[in-house]
Structure formats: structure tokens, C-alpha cells
Design a protein around this nucleic acid. Sequence first.
DNA 1: ATTGTTATGTTGGTCATCCCAACATTGGCC
DNA 2: GGCCAATGTTGGGATGACCAACATAACAAT
Lengths: 148, 148
Amino acid sequence: MNADAAPPARLARTPSWLISTAAAHGHRLVTDGFAAAGARGYHYRLLAALDEYGPSSQADLGRRTGIDRSDVVAALNELAAKDLIDRSPDPADRRRNVITLTPAGARHLNELENVLAGIQDELLAPLAPAERDQLIALLARLVDHHAR
Amino acid sequence: MNADAAPPARLARTPSWLISTAAAHGHRLVTDGFAAAGARGYHYRLLAALDEYGPSSQADLGRRTGIDRSDVVAALNELAAKDLIDRSPDPADRRRNVITLTPAGARHLNELENVLAGIQDELLAPLAPAERDQLIALLARLVDHHAR
DNA sequence: ATTGTTATGTTGGTCATCCCAACATTGGCC
DNA sequence: GGCCAATGTTGGGATGACCAACATAACAAT
């Protein structure tokens, strides 16, 4: 976003615009932070899912992270090229690959976690702690509702 | 987003994730709604800016809507092809074009406003009126702060 | 057990939003 | 008059989200 001049007033109070503008700011912070660490959003999501659920198939990773199967393939290729994950065929189901987090992957995930933590502070800077909780709770209800 | 299975827990309470997920839902609603009306986000933003500020140069439109100059060109080409805007050289400054909303463009803007209004309700459905105001106020503070 | 259906990984696209670099033309400033 | 800034335009590229098709393999039903 440029934002040298004022946006149309009708937009400035439209919830969907506020949300997407706030998201754009957050997205920029996250993208820049991750880029500095040599990663992007898909990488973090996949590494976090692997850390939380342990070795998984690609399809499971896709379902858990909300990333399309085909995009999972591409992102895992990139992660595998950096030895952050290991991809090997599943002996129990030969359609599947078992994706495992490598030690290097775990370290990288840790780094991304730190980046992300710093960004939350920056993003929520203008809000007091109680207000942050409020915002988080309201957004969580929105997200829950639409996740059906 | 797919969301068949649960996302990593560490994400589910991360503000930047909540905001971008909420934005993704809103974005999908808006995109689908606009697509049904034959438009996309850039078109609405430009038409709304034209309606609010009157005839403008492309550079001004870009600054007001936060759309890059180069993307303004493309979007205006599309709007002009449908006769929703008029593009003519500015006699007072021959570098500029004067972009004007046509009657058809104003009608189309109206249609998009209606679509958008319906979407706000859908997006905020799980929140009571007072909570909606709260959310809007909090987001507005976030956006103001980061717009510097 | 053969048949039909579903799941998986993969390839190869599309689309929208955002962003950047370069260029020629034109205005304005000194 | 000469330098710098603004403008419209072209042509990229990155990211995130999504879709269609396909071969292989597992599974279900009869």
C-alpha cells in the first residue's frame, strides 16, 4: 500500500476494508521478517505443523495448514533443498511420503518463531494488553465462525 | 483455505495469523461478490475514489487508493473498456489524464456498494452490534498507527 | 476377486494483490 | 536554459490461493 493521500472515506470504516488493511500491514511485516530469514509464509506453516504433529504425509500437512496439495509439493521441495525436512516414501502406504522435520529444520523454525513473536508486538503496538486480548478474542470468534 | 483439519495450535492464537485468516475470509467473500458483478477489488476502490473526489489524475487515484501507478493503468483500461470511466488528457497538464466517472460507472459503483454492504453483515455475523463496534474501533487504531 | 471409488503426489496452469525498475514526455524550479 | 520531479506506461516478479488432470495405490462393495 502507498497511502500518501487519504483513502476514500467510505472505505475507512468498512469492516472488511479495515480487516484487510490491518492484514496487509501484518502481512508485510511477516513477509519482510521471513524473507530476511530466507523463508516465506508457507514454509513457516509447514514447519510448525511438522513440529506440532510429528512426521506427516503431504496431504495431512495440506489439510492442517490450509495449503493446497500442489502448493505443499512446491514448498516442500524448497524446504528439502535446504535440508530442513526429510521426504521419504511411507512403507505402510506407498501412495504417501513421510515428511520429517530435520534438526536444521527445527532450528530454522525456532528462528522464524522469534521473528514472528517480534512482529506481533510491532503489529499490536498501539493497543494496551487488555485491548490486545479483546481484539484477539473477537477475531478468534470471527475465524471460528467462518471456518465451520 | 481448506481447513479440514485443525491448524497448528501455535498459529491459532497468533494475532497476525488471526488477522490474516479473518482477512482471507473477508477477501474471499468480497472477491466472490465482486466477481459475480464482474469486478474486482481494484475496480471498486478506483470507482469509489472517483465518486468521492471527482475527476482525478491517475497518479492521484493511485495515491488515494493505495494502488500502484502501473496497476492503476491496467485497472482503468478494464474500466474504460466497459465505459465505466472516461479517460481524457488534461489540457492544463499534458502529462496527466483526467479520469471521470461515467453514469454507467456510477451505477456499477452502486451495485458494488450493495454487494459490499451485504458482505459486512456476513463477515461480522457472529458478533453482537457492540462487539462489532469494538472490533472496528480496535482495527481502526491499528490501521491508523501503521499508516503513520 | 474383480470392479469401482477414493486418496495421494505431482505437474502445470490461473487469478488477484502488491511491488519494483525503466522510459519518454512534460512541468516546474533555480 | 538546464536540472529535477511528476506522470503514464510497459514489463517484470513475488506471494498466496485455487483448480484440473493424471498415474499410482489403497480401499469398498458386490
